[in-house]
Amino acid sequence: MDTPLIRIRDLCKAYTRGDQSIPVLAGITFDIAAGEFLALIGPSGSGKSTLLNLIAGIDTADSGQILVGDTDIVTLSEGELADWRSGHVGFIFQFYNLIPVLTALENVELPLLLTSLTRHERREHAAHALDAVGLSDRLDHRPNQLSGGQQQRVAIARAIVADPDIIVADEPTGDLDRVSAQDILHLMDRLNTELGKTIIMVTHDQRAADAAHRVRSLDKGVLHVSD
């Protein structure tokens, strides 16, 4: 494996329901190399989405370490974590999660509002990102004026616009037809191979998993090597 970008050590997470503590991740340890395209698979409730959320810094671990470069994101405060996410992580969601009242261009521009770029620069970057996903003719369209596949492309443009190291994708093809899903997977492959983005994808879809370069499966909070 190349130099690891992400090092996960003894990561534990449990949810509490009433008085009960339900373990979800039980001491996960593994590395993710820079520029890797990793698929996390497993049955529902296996903990794969929880693991993805922890790596993305939108959930907090009970114990263990997630070292991204030299930063252990488990130790960051909520505010520090928000700053870290805005600079390092791009998100692709199953249901696209675009803001309905904003145009495609404005949706893509959102992460750039957290940078020091000027309005003109932000608009330029956002237009460029939309061009990269083949939607340069849809800048002023609102999400409800776009197909599912197009919306997911906008979401991908939003994920890459701030040039993050890591892209996390939670069931990115889960809401798409076969052709659109194939299209999105192809686009993600290009992000990985051409732009060198590290992609971590949770999926139930075997075709999506096949598109990744490495597959890890989770079962009852324990990680298994599948490749």
Binding site: I58, A82, S86, N97, I99
Partner: peptide, 11 residues
């Protein structure tokens, strides 16, 4: 979900 998305993006 919009609120969750914006928070995830770093707001």
């Amino acid at each position: 979900p919009e609120i969750g998305t914006m928070r995830a993006l770093g707001f």
